[in-house]
């Protein structure tokens, strides 16, 4: 037995060492308190609505969100705009539909059933307008980066002047949290960039938090019902497990008394 312990200690020591080495390479992400984390985590409605505003006024000029529909905006568990508000939002965009009975394509205002209208017709057009870089689709972005929402939040606030000795190419910016520190997106947020309808001050941090919350919802629109169902399911399982445990004891007592 003693040998096992010795060897185990040695291994833990070795592993701890390698973890240490690994940890040094990483930059610690900025943390903020997300309302949607935890067992009962829910989205902050108002934050989602503000986040939508930031997305649509700032991000949407380059970033598409092709898997989200306008109807999602009033569905439960999301920003929960009223249906009329969502209709009005949709109607402010134009989509190409058709062909009609004359065989012509036509332009009409978007409906609730339409997906979010894309800023560019295709990837090539997006690249051409953005110095060769493709602004990623934002539908599942919050799940598509390691570090998730913390990473996106950090990235939005991670713009810095390049350290001395680092020269940046034209149209490339320095970001503390970006992989390789070079990013082709100019700093998107600045204090007071959008004008919130409520009394919230549109600080950089506030906007970053709101828009990241919105992105999380876009990536995981059923998060709230998942958390609710999870709690019920696990509670049910725990109670059932306890009941089965006592049944098991009862059944096995027949044998143990026999022996």
């Amino acid at each position: 037995m003693k040998n096992i312990f010795k060897i185990t200690y040695l291994i833990i020591f070795l592993l701890a060492g390698t973890f240490q080495v690994n940890a040094e390479e990483k930059v610690d992400l900025l943390k903020t308190d997300w309302s949607f984390k935890g067992l009962f985590g829910k989205f902050d409605r108002v934050s989602l609505q503000r986040g939508y505003q930031v997305y649509t006024e700032v991000c949407a000029s380059c970033h598409s969100m092709k898997y989200v529909s306008y109807r999602n905006l009033f569905e439960p568990g999301g920003p929960e705009f009223t249906e009329d508000q969502a209709k009005a939002i949709a109607a402010s965009f134009e989509v190409t539909d058709g062909p009609n009975n004359d065989g012509e394509m036509f332009i009409r205002p978007a409906k609730l059933s339409d997906k979010f209208v894309k800023p560019f017709a295709n990837v090539k057009a997006a690249q051409a307008a953005n110095g060769g870089a493709y602004p990623p689709d934002m539908s599942v972005l919050a799940k598509a980066r390691s570090g998730g929402v913390d990473y996106i939040y950090s990235l939005l606030l991670g713009y810095e002047d390049a350290p001395s000795g680092v020269t940046l190419e034209d149209g490339v910016y320095y970001n503390k949290y970006m992989y390789g520190n070079n990013i082709k997106m100019a700093e998107p947020l600045s204090d007071g960039l959008v004008e919130y309808n409520d009394d919230t001050t549109a600080s950089k941090e506030q906007m970053a938090k709101d828009v990241t919350t919105f992105l999380m919802w876009a990536a995981e629109p059923h998060l709230e019902s998942r958390h609710k169902m999870g709690f019920k399911a696990i509670l049910y399982l725990i109670i059932l497990t306890i009941l089965v445990y006592f049944s098991m004891k009862k059944i096995w007592s027949r044998i143990e008394s026999e022996v």
Binding site: L39, R226, I234, Y245, W252, I255
Partner: peptide
């Protein structure tokens, strides 16, 4: 005897499983 024991263990396993699925 074995069925009830298996069910008990399975339920414990499902609790862990559920944590991953939901959280």
């Amino acid at each position: 005897y074995i069925v009830i024991k298996d069910v008990f263990a399975l339920l414990m396993f499902m609790i862990v499983f559920a944590f991953f699925i939901f959280y």
